[in-house]
Design a protein around this nucleic acid. Structure first.
Lengths: 231, 231
DNA sequence: GTTAATTTTTAGGTTAGCCTAAAAATTGTA
DNA sequence: TACAATTTTTAGGCTAACCTAAAAATTAAC
């Protein structure tokens, strides 16, 4: 009844990480955009644990050679750590795509499911769904899917809806929010990747926009997480 | 970053079980064939833990009202416990079927994958794959899949290959073994659910049989786990 | 450049799930 | 029915991953 999925790193040595450890590495990657140092507090916030727990776990990951930790200065990933993070990100995004394309989920219903599945699928599962979907390069939120050899497809630096000048419009390319609350709001407003949105004007901290023939107010922090491309 | 899948029992009260607990309940179900008492040792063997660990966990499950434990006398499932076990069995067998039918796995490559996935898929996932496959009633090993309302389809009491008299033949209906070693052996011999097998004679503890035009020797303990039906 | 605010770490504690070794209960046997 | 063998439980430990509260380091503000 042992069930832990054993992964191998590039040198072929056995790497057995807990799901918690995989989550830490993934969040360090996301917060540090792959390369930068990440603070204990930011990480604690993302992982919904206390800073003290982060310090402890980061120490363990450092011993495993997955992160570099300069006390009081932040953590960053080593090459092996980066690979684990990218593997998780690839699993997550492939799974989201799979849930939408093959199992008929809504694009805003896939995050939590992928979050649990990403830690337990095998290389075979990963390869089969990737193949079945024709090796997709974007997930349903518009995020790029790392390739099988774990490189991240390069992207044009994107512009958020919040930065778009009043009067201009664009197409929603990526939704950088996965929490229930914001996804539900987008759903109610009829916004999804591919939607065309026009900025009318800033109203205080919020933004008045038009989409799908209707105009409405969008909270500023959400507008900052909607990445646009030209039409 | 809390990720535990929350399930609800029939009264609607929150039921949050660990994967370990789900495994215990599933094995108690399998060993006790749904109703009988199961000994500490047998359970420990199946779960690959020590008897002392079983005693401890069984105590916890009893407190949760999922099993009844008479000290020194064995454990059995309560109705809630039975439902959890059937839910896991349904997940497991649906997943195995899904992996074979939709992702092109071999029937002998699905067990370990299903073993990990069964604990983390949502009700939605379960419903979607069941629907996509037309609500199958048997998994790739020939085992019955519990229905969505968690009842186990009744079955004719089966006869094992070991019980089949010499000279007679039948069709392999169910393979009651999921370990790598035995599955690989069956694979090498070209045996799979649906194969026609003729018993030639007992040779000591083993059994000489003919299938696919070839004759070979099958270990007795394996023959006891191959369930046959008439041709 | 001190001092105050913030961030990070340390110290000490908890729980689940496992373990080994020893004690207790049950079962099998003469 | 007594004694031996087996099974089960108890007692005491360990580790991973969390926690709170207090101490230490860094950063920001005057």
């Amino acid at each position: 009844m042992k069930k832990t999925l054993v992964k191998r790193d590039e040198e072929g040595s056995r790497l057995v990480l807990s799901e918690a450890q995989e989550d830490y590495l993934k969040q360090i990657f996301i917060l540090g955009e792959g390369r930068q140092k990440v603070g204990t507090q930011a990480l604690a916030h993302r992982l919904e644990v206390r800073p003290a727990s982060v310090t402890e776990m980061v120490g363990r990951l450092a011993q495993l050679g997955l992160v570099v930790h300069a006390r009081y200065r932040g953590v960053s990933l080593t090459e092996s750590g980066r690979r684990v993070a990218l593997e998780m990100l690839r699993h997550h995004r492939l799974l989201e795509t799979f849930l939408v394309e093959m199992l008929g989920y809504g694009w805003d219903q896939v995050h939590e499911e992928a979050e649990r599945l990403e830690h337990v699928i095998s290389e075979r599962f990963e390869a089969r769904i990737a193949e079945a979907m024709g090796h997709p390069t974007r997930d349903p939120h518009g995020d790029p899917i790392p390739t099988a050899d774990l490189s991240m497809p390069p992207e044009a630096t994107p512009m958020s809806l919040a930065e778009l000048p009043a009067g201009e419009s664009g197409t929603l390319a990526r939704v950088g929010a996965q929490d229930r609350e914001n996804l539900d709001l987008l759903g109610r407003l009829g916004l999804a990747p591919g939607s065309s949105i026009e900025v009318i004007a800033a109203e205080g901290t919020a933004l008045r926009v038009r989409a799908g023939g209707e105009s409405f107010l969008l909270p500023g922090f959400l507008a900052e997480r909607l990445w646009m491309e030209d039409e």
